[in-house]
């Protein structure tokens, strides 16, 4: 138990400086990107240069980050729950499966979600993995005339 508490406080301590660090690195990278924007001659710049506004925001964000580290540091009481971690991983799998077929990826992801909620009934599998994606596909295809990306399943309908 003590080990768990120690792990939490250790994790929280790391996150309390890691998050501001990530924000500052992001701001630094963004600022560097803005330096590569085209600059307009004075007569065409219409008030401000294209890089001025993003640069102003980035500087403000760095200032606010410093302020929240000082006044309101990040406190996390618990680790990221395992189901959330798995769901995040499943999103990556979804991105890969979508390359094969959009609705295949959706079905597999949703089946994974039902399993994460510890539901192993056939009815749920068929409803969430088959009936809902199929219903949504035909709703959008027939009513809203949306054309989905081709894949091994959608090709059965599209020909």
């Amino acid at each position: 138990m003590d080990n768990e508490i120690n792990q939490y406080s250790k994790g929280s301590a790391i996150e309390s400086w890691l998050i501001p660090l990530i924000i500052i690195i992001f701001c630094g990278f963004t600022y560097w990107l803005t330096t590569g924007f085209d600059r307009m001659p004075p007569i065409l710049k219409r008030g401000i240069q294209p890089s001025d506004f993003p640069q102003l925001l980035v500087v403000l964000m760095v200032g606010l980050t410093a302020l929240f580290v000082w006044k309101d540091p990040i406190k996390v009481s618990e680790k990221i729950p395992t189901p959330t971690f798995i769901a995040l991983g499943m999103m990556l799998v979804f991105v890969l499966l979508v390359q094969l077929d959009f609705f295949f990826g959706l079905s597999i992801f949703c089946l994974g979600l039902t399993l994460l909620w510890k539901d192993r009934r056939w009815f749920t599998f068929i409803f969430v993995g088959l009936l809902v994606p199929l219903g949504v596909f035909f709703l959008f295809d027939q009513v809203f005339e949306v054309r989905f990306p081709r894949g091994f399943l959608t090709n059965i309908w599209y020909g």
Binding site: F102, L106, L113, D119, F127, V128, V132, F140
Partner: peptide, 17 residues
Amino acid sequence: QILWPCVFIFSVVGAYA
């Protein structure tokens, strides 16, 4: 376990559409 997979499907398909 039925509601949230449905929300995900509508979210993704809605974003694409």
